[in-house]
């Protein structure tokens, strides 16, 4: 199963290595990892997306909790939450299909943020399915390059 895990950590060097070691030691491949400051500057939040056996992942989450420097671990599986990822996609484009690309981007509420003679760069924000859907539409044009920030997630409501 796919898990989106949010980890609040002390903003110190070495913390990322500790977390990465835990996943690596059990042969988990991390799908995505995003790190940034929180509302409290000395605390960072890491959002980790990982797939694997639920029982082993539960074990990994307990191990994460046990690490010093980790303040809190949330697995979003049961809670209502939002996920967002940002992707930059460089697509082959000539004069004759540029308007078609603009249309597609519009439908997805994506933005064209750079245009050159033979390509455009499209910026899209959304959850995984939305980005996948756009990718599928763009593939026939020829995707030259893509990069993504990795998923960040937040629980809905009060907390």
């Amino acid at each position: 199963m796919r898990h989106t895990i949010s980890v609040l950590v002390e903003n110190k060097f070495g913390v990322l290595a500790r977390i990465a070691t835990l996943f690596a030691a059990r042969g988990f491949n991390i799908d995505s990892l995003a790190v940034g400051e929180t509302e409290t500057p000395d605390i960072s939040r890491m959002t980790i997306v990982v797939r694997g056996d639920d029982r082993i992942l539960e074990q990994v989450e307990k191990q994460l909790n046990k690490l010093l420097d980790i303040i809190k671990v949330i697995d979003f599986k049961e809670t209502r939450h939002l996920e967002r990822d940002l992707a930059l996609i460089k697509v082959k484009s000539a004069k004759n299909n540029r308007s078609e690309l603009i249309q597609i981007a519009d439908i997805f509420r994506a933005k064209i943020i750079d245009v050159s003679a033979d390509s455009v760069i499209i910026e899209i924000t959304g959850n995984e399915e939305k980005i996948q859907a756009l990718m599928n539409m763009l593939r026939p044009f020829g995707i030259k390059e893509m990069c993504r920030t990795g998923i960040i997630a937040m629980g809905r409501g009060v907390k």
Binding site: F13, G14, A17, T21, L68
Partner: peptide
Amino acid sequence: TTGITRPVTKHNYL
């Protein structure tokens, strides 16, 4: 040293 001993300590510091 902290890299090498990370998996064999409860915690470590540089």
